[in-house]
Amino acid sequence: MSETAKGQGASEGQYVTFGLGDELFAAPVGLVREILTYQVPSRIPNSPDYLLGLTDVRGQGVPTADLRIRLGMAPTEPTLNTRILVLDIPLEDRVLSLGLVADRVFEVAVFSADQIEPSPDIGIKWRSDYISGVVRREDGFVVLIDLPRLLSSTDTVSLASFPDVDRAA
């Protein structure tokens, strides 16, 4: 693996692969607490457009985001394949529990360090800081998402401000 990819946080390991439209993404398996069948989150007034609301995860209200919207993709209607990945994302001062909506979840894949390439340089400035690397496959590329970077500090403050909702009562 190149020094660039190492510096961007890509490392050998297991990743949960999931799809958004025709694109394939992956998140480190260690961040994934569970994968849920899609349920409509409870709306939160005045939240960012990509924040769908709160999802009840075993009695805890977990902020749930539409990753398509966060990445600038067009929103889509949920299907029978739509899932919510419940993630525990380590930040500087805490762990953020967050649900991310994916069109579908495929598998847990193992990527070796020599398979992981740095994010591509396209010659112009573009928002690629959330990409920790890419993996080439026969059918295209898998984009490895750096979730702490995907959520800017403003976003994490906003998401962390929602209190846990005890719905078990």
Rank of each mutant, 00 (worst) to 15 (best):
D66Y: 06
G9H: 11
A113Q: 09
E34C: 10
F25A: 05
S97T: 12
A26C: 02
G9P: 07
D66F: 09
S97D: 11
E34N: 05
E138N: 09
V40L: 04
V86W: 06
D114P: 09
F162V: 10
D88N: 15
E138V: 08
T154Q: 08
T55L: 03
E34V: 05
I69D: 11
G21Y: 15
Q115H: 03
V110N: 05
V157S: 11
I84M: 12
R83E: 09
R70D: 03
A26H: 03
V143N: 02
L71T: 09
L100I: 03
D66W: 07
T64L: 01
I35Y: 04
G123I: 12
T82P: 08
V95A: 04
A5G: 07
A160K: 08
R167M: 14
L80S: 14
R70C: 01
Q8N: 14
R68S: 02
D146P: 06
V29K: 10
I69Q: 13
F111Y: 05
E12W: 05
L80R: 13
R167A: 14
L96K: 00
V16H: 01
D121C: 12
E12D: 09
G99M: 03
D155Q: 13
I145M: 07
E92H: 09
P90V: 09
G7N: 15
D121W: 09
G133F: 00
E23P: 02
E138C: 05
L151N: 07
S161R: 07
R94M: 07
P120S: 12
S161L: 05
G7E: 12
S47G: 12
E3Y: 08
V95K: 10
E92A: 14
V57K: 10
V157Y: 08
M1D: 13
G21M: 15
T4Y: 06
R70F: 00
L96P: 05
A113D: 15
S47W: 06
L52Y: 00
